[in-house]
């Protein structure tokens, strides 16, 4: 896509999450599930069957009272940049890596439900629709028309709210622009984070806050050893938190 100056540039959208700030409140996940029409069931405690695009993991440093400390890791899709594991195994081209934005998408109607991608994903971000989604009658009213509800037998996952990218482009086009400003395309979770722990932008654009934040020594990614180059970066000042992210094998 084009930048303000008009030259063609390939974007790599990415996110930073400051785990020192995150209070694990879950607003990001609630808003994500509202935005993306993620269904719910009566027993949500069965985490192997329930649907969630954003999960929040509570992790402690393993020490005893009173030295124990806790951090929360909100976990959207990591949007891997390199040998994206799910994309490389999908036999139906239902999940694809877009070279112009770096977004790893998921096309529900094309998915054949083999769940190969779920096995391949090292971050467990994908979930499978074991049942058709059912909302109590009037609850269908709060569904977002920008995202199609899925059907049974397909896999789904976080898309970095790619529909919001399109909405932002629509608006830009309506105003006769071909470029997006930094704050125009932001996933729902980032927009809603009440403590400002999440940032979003183009990692290729040095003017964007995220591009600067990922240079910081506080920045790290989950399972970097796998070299899947996730575009979701975490930030922490604590050594033990950064160590948690990888097995340092």
């Amino acid at each position: 896509m084009k930048t303000e100056s008009g030259d063609q540039r390939i974007a790599r959208y990415g996110m930073t999450i400051d785990v020192d700030k995150c209070t694990g409140c879950g607003t990001c996940a609630v808003v994500c599930h509202m935005e993306n029409n993620v269904p719910f069931t009566v027993d949500e405690s069965d985490k192997s069957r329930n649907m969630a695009w954003m999960r929040i993991y509570k992790v402690d440093n393993g020490l005893d009272y009173p030295h124990v400390r806790v951090v929360y890791f909100p976990r959207p899709c990591m949007q891997c940049d390199h040998h994206t594991p799910c994309v490389s195994v999908c036999p139906a081209s239902a999940t694809n890596y877009d070279g112009l934005t770096g977004i790893v998408d998921q096309i529900n109607t094309r998915c054949i439900g083999c769940r190969y991608c779920m096995a391949a994903c090292p971050y467990m971000v994908r979930c499978f629709n074991w049942w058709d989604p059912v909302w109590p009658k009037d609850m269908e009213k709060h569904l977002n028309p920008d995202v199609a509800p899925r059907m049974r037998g397909v896999v789904e996952k976080c898309t970095f709210c790619s529909h919001r990218y399109l909405k932002a482009k629509d608006k830009a086009h309506n105003e006769g622009r071909d470029y997006l400003r930094e704050d125009e395309y932001v996933p729902a979770c980032v927009e809603a984070c009440p403590v400002g722990a999440m940032r979003f932008g183009d990692l290729n654009n040095p003017e964007h806050a995220v591009a600067q934040l990922i240079q910081s020594p506080r920045a790290f990614r989950l399972l970097e050893n796998l070299h899947t180059e996730p575009k979701v970066y975490y930030l922490s000042s604590y050594e033990w938190v950064r160590k948690l992210a990888d097995n340092f094998a």
Binding site: A29, V31, M34, E35, A192, P194
Partner: peptide, 24 residues
């Protein structure tokens, strides 16, 4: 139809921040 609730960035109390309960 009401489809999403976000914090009001101009409101003097919360300046855009809301809790998960409010969002849901």
């Amino acid at each position: 139809r009401l489809v999403r609730i976000d914090g009001d960035k101009e409101h003097p109390v919360n300046q855009g921040s809301i809790c998960p309960m409010g969002a849901a």
